[in-house]
Design a protein around this nucleic acid. Structure first.
Lengths: 330, 330
DNA sequence: TTGTATGCGTTATCAA
DNA sequence: TTGATAACGCATACAA
C-alpha cells in the first residue's frame, strides 16, 4: 500500500516550506504565481490532494451533514434523499446517512453525529418524540433540522409542506367533484403532523355543512396497513352508509386502500369510492393507480434546509406550499 | 456556543494526565479501576466524549464508507441502502451517501471519498464504465466494491446475485407453466449484467427447442421506458404472432409493460401475455401488479460486502443465489 | 500502571 | 510573499 503524499512531501520536492504548499491550495492566499506553479507541478507529479480529515480537525468543519431516516419503505423519502444529497454536494457538503431503527435510535444517532463532529443534523421525515432528547446533552453540538415533518423541539426548525393548505386544496377539489361523504385515513395517530391533517380535513367539511366524517385509522404508513384499515371499514359499514371519497394521509396508504376497495370488494374507483393520497410518489402516476394526490415541494424544502445549514438563511421553521395533482382516482 | 470538553479538560479536573483519560476510553487498556472510575465520573460531569475526527486522523481509520448511488428512481436500491446502512452501523461504521449524477460523476465521488479518507467505497448498483477510472490515480486509496452489479474493473470485487441461475429458474417456471413464445425486455443495452441476462434467457429457450425469442429494448430502467418498449412491440407485431410471456430485466420495466398490455391494449395478464420481473420490489406484491419475479439476496449480499470491508473475508467477487417469487402475473 | 514525547496533516497567527 | 511556531484532539511508543 502506497502512502499518500502530504503537503510536506510536496514541499520537500518543490524546495519550499509546507506552508507554501498549503497556500497554493488555498483560494485567495497570497502567493506568487511562480511558487504556485512550482508547487502545483510537484503536487500533480506526486498526486497530492489535501487531506480533508486533517483540515476538518483544524477548522472545526467537516462539511458533513447527518441525514437521519427511519422508514425506508416509503418511496417519497427517496425523492428527499435524492434532492438533499444533490443539493448538499453542490455546496461541497456530503450526507452521512443514518438508519434509525430499533437497534439505533435518535439518541444513538445524535451522539454519533456529535462525536464525528458533523456540521448539521437533518431528520428526514423521522418519527421523533421530544422526550428522547431529554437525557441527551449536546453541548456544542451541530444545529438540527426537521425536514418533512413538524418539529416539537424548541430551537429546532422544521421545514415542512403546508399541510393545512394542502388538505384544503385537496378537499376543495373533492368537494367540487361532488363528493359529500368523506373519509380520512390516518397513519400513526401519535404524530402531530397526522393530527393536524386530520383536523384540517374535518374543519373543511364542517365548514361546508358536513359533520359526519369517517375516520379510518391505519397502524403505520404501509400499504398493508392501509389495506387493513380499508378492509376493516368496508366490513363494518353497510354499503348504504359508505363514504364516497377517501383521503389518505399518504400515497402508500392509498395504494393499499385501493387494492382492497377494488380487489376485495369489487368496487370501482372513483365511481363507488374515490381515493386521494398525499406525496405524489412514483407509483401514483402509474395507470394501475392513477392517484389524485398532493405533491410536496421537495426541491424548495430541501433548498431551504440547505440554506439554513449554510447559515445563509435564519434558522426558523418554514412552511411551503405544495401542488395538487389531479388524476383519475378522485 | 459551549466548547466541547476534551481529554485534557477531563484530565485536569480528574487530576491525572490526559493519556490516562484516553486509556479510560480505550477498551482493554491497562488502567486501574480506581483511575478509570475517577476519569469516568469527571467525563460524565463534563459530558466528555472522544472526538472521533481526531481519532481518525491519528489512526488512519474514519469508520466511514462511501456509498455511491446513481439512480434513486429504482425502489430496489432502497432495500440495499437500508440493509447496508443497518449492517454498517451494527459494525460501528457509517455510510456516506454520494449521489452520482451529471454534475457529480464517479471520478468526483472517488476523489472526494479519497480526500475524506473514507475506509471503503461501495458502488451500489451504479452504472460504471471502466474507462472512467483510467485517468484517476488513487494511490493509497480505499478498497472499492461493486454491489448488485458485475464489475469489469480488475481488482474490484463484485458482490452480485447469480443472474444466470435466476434467469434459469424464472424460465423453468415459465416453461413449466406452458408458455412457448417468450420475449425478453432489456434495459440499458450497454451494461454487461443486462447482456448476461439476455444471453442466459436465449440459451434456455434454445435448449428447449425454441429459437424464436422476441427482444424488446427499453431505453432505461424506468416504468415509462418499459411502457414505451411494450407499446412499440404490440403495435408492430400482429396479435397472432405475439409472445405469450414477457420476462423483464427489472420489476419497474415489468410494471410499465403491464400498464400498457392491460390498459392500452386491453389484454389480460397472464391469460394473453404473462409477465415476470426481477428484484421483487415493494410494489411487486401489490394486488394491482401481483408480479412473479426474482428476489435478490439483499441481506446476504450486503453481509458479504461488509465482511470484505472489515477484512473478515478475502476481497473477491461473490455470486449469491436469490429466490424465485411466484405470483399471479406468470 | 502511569506519565512523557512525538506524530497524524492540516490551519491560524505572527515574524521575517 | 514566505517561513516558523502553535494548535486541533487523539494514539502510539517508550520510559518511569
Amino acid at each position: 500500500m502506497v502512502k499518500r503524499a502530504t503537503a510536506r512531501d510536496v514541499a520537500e520536492q518543490a524546495g519550499v516550506s509546507k506552508w507554501t504548499v498549503i497556500r497554493a491550495f488555498t483560494p485567495g492566499a497570497s502567493i506568487t504565481e511562480t511558487s504556485r506553479a512550482k508547487v502545483m507541478a510537484v503536487a500533480e507529479k506526486l498526486n497530492y490532494r489535501p487531506n480533508l480529515l486533517a483540515r476538518s480537525l483544524a477548522t472545526n468543519l467537516t462539511h458533513q451533514v447527518a441525514v437521519l431516516v427511519d422508514d425506508f419503505e416509503n418511496p417519497y423519502k427517496l425523492s428527499f434523499l435524492e434532492r438533499l444529497t444533490l443539493e448538499l454536494q453542490s455546496e461541497g457538503l456530503v450526507a452521512v446517512l443514518i438508519n434509525i431503527n430499533e437497534h439505533f435510535d435518535h439518541v444513538h444517532a445524535l451522539l454519533n453525529a456529535d462525536q464525528r463532529q458533523l456540521d448539521a443534523v437533518v431528520m428526514c421525515g423521522t418519527a421523533f418524540r421530544t422526550e428522547m432528547l431529554q437525557d441527551v446533552r449536546l453541548d456544542g453540538a451541530a444545529p438540527m433540522f426537521v425536514l418533512a415533518r413538524d418539529s416539537q423541539i424548541p430551537g429546532v426548525p422544521a421545514i415542512n409542506c403546508d399541510s393545512t393548505l394542502a388538505i384544503n386544496e385537496l378537499c376543495r377539489h373533492l368537494h367540487g367533484k361532488g363528493y359529500r361523504r368523506p373519509g380520512f385515513m390516518a397513519g400513526a395517530k401519535t404524530l402531530s403532523t397526522a393530527l393536524g391533517r386530520q383536523r384540517a380535513f374535518k374543519a373543511f367539511w364542517q365548514l361546508h355543512g358536513i359533520d359526519e366524517v369517517a375516520e379510518l385509522a391505519a397502524q403505520s404508513y404501509s400499504a398493508a396497513s392501509g389495506a387493513a384499515a380499508a378492509r376493516r371499514y368496508l366490513n363494518e359499514v353497510s354499503p348504504a352508509d359508505r363514504i364516497d371519497v377517501l383521503l389518505c394521509e399518504n400515497d402508500v396508504l392509498a395504494f393499499g386502500a385501493m387494492d382492497v376497495i377494488r380487489g376485495e370488494f369489487g368496487l370501482k374507483v372513483p365511481a363507488d369510492i374515490a381515493v386521494a393520497g398525499f406525496d405524489n410518489t412514483l407509483f401514483a402516476a402509474a395507470p394501475a393507480y392513477d392517484l389524485t394526490t398532493y405533491e410536496q415541494p421537495v426541491e424548495a424544502m430541501v433548498k431551504a434546509t440547505v440554506s439554513m445549514i449554510l447559515g445563509r438563511e435564519p434558522k426558523v421553521s418554514v412552511i411551503l406550499p405544495g401542488r395538487l395533482v389531479v388524476r383519475g382516482s378522485a
